[in-house]
Design a protein around this nucleic acid. Sequence first.
DNA 1: TCCGCCCGACTGACCGTTCGGTCATTTTGT
DNA 2: ACAAAATGACCGAACGGTCAGTCGGGCGGA
Lengths: 201, 201
Amino acid sequence: MSRKTKEEIVEEFRCASIQDAAMRVIARKGLDDATIQDIADEAGIAKGTLYVYFRDREELLAKTADRAFDSLVAELEPAFDGDAPFAERLGNVVLRQLRFYDENRALFQATLAIPQAALHKRRPGSYARYAARLEKLFADAQARGEIRSDIDPVTIAAIYRDCMRGMIIRRIEQKQTRTSRETDTETIVSVLVRGIASGEK
Amino acid sequence: MSRKTKEEIVEEFRCASIQDAAMRVIARKGLDDATIQDIADEAGIAKGTLYVYFRDREELLAKTADRAFDSLVAELEPAFDGDAPFAERLGNVVLRQLRFYDENRALFQATLAIPQAALHKRRPGSYARYAARLEKLFADAQARGEIRSDIDPVTIAAIYRDCMRGMIIRRIEQKQTRTSRETDTETIVSVLVRGIASGEK
DNA sequence: TCCGCCCGACTGACCGTTCGGTCATTTTGT
DNA sequence: ACAAAATGACCGAACGGTCAGTCGGGCGGA
């Protein structure tokens, strides 16, 4: 028992190291320019060793993306539930997500840079869990009468992801002159909740 | 004069043919998989000929993207002005944009698939014109008091682009079970204008 | 205890392929 | 006939993936 476990631990540790290296390289050079050699160098192993743990480049990148999304969902989870008003819960989700990417810029390209089409094709992928979790947030709010019920929660979740994706990309690009997380959160939440209509009318 | 003009006309025609071919190939195979050979084949010319008209692959793709954005802006232009209420003007812009991509799927990858970062770097690029035109739409609406003035029109325009980008990608992916253009337009406009807050409150 | 054998994790030189880009040659238009 | 345009065979670079060889730690026999 202890023996078998030891090997598994070593294997998991190696896999995790390689995936972390992959995230850093992807964050630095982009998805397409992240070569196997780059990732192996970053991980401090030989290229051949990488193929001991991953069948090919595609499997490595897919599992790396899964790992990245899992950590995002774990970060958001505490904000989803509770009895707070919808706007407050949404604000917490947004704030946590912005902070997540502020603190882990490496994870950005590993998640957002991947074409959505590719993500949707992977069956039980962690991206689907992320999307489903958002859909539940909006469906619950509809059930409580906190938001409009005439739009599919799936669509609302998609619009949320679109807005967040754009905001995160913009924040990464303007890392110098960046607005505060709180301000950007307020912008997203208020536009989503109230829209851009003039308050007077 | 006629001589010089003739040569210029021929050159422009060749450039346009190649760019159109590039758009079709990009739409079919994606940006990264669109090789020079593919584009030359699609245009019915030899690979070497392509280098008579474009310095390298990067210049070809950049000018192709410019061409695609120019045609998008031209398509939207009639919807921007006029005295109609803001929601109506916005609806027309959205509707035209969705129709543009429905009818020119080839232009999608040539515009939306390109990383925003790359677009922002090109100096006077047509993408900047597209973004600026949207910003003017929202700034005008603010000046008329039709929409909130507490959010930078640049930010609003960015959120609009994010939502549209996502909607267009989703429409392309689900080309079978696709919602009507009018329904999707209504969704975007109503979320942007009213938000997702419950109407009762 | 110590030595030598052995097994498998690890290595990196190498291979086949693909692509962007070049240029000597051929074709075309006048 | 000749210049300009077009061609496609060719080149070097870069990539993903392979595999014969290396190396070190543990095990068994003396």
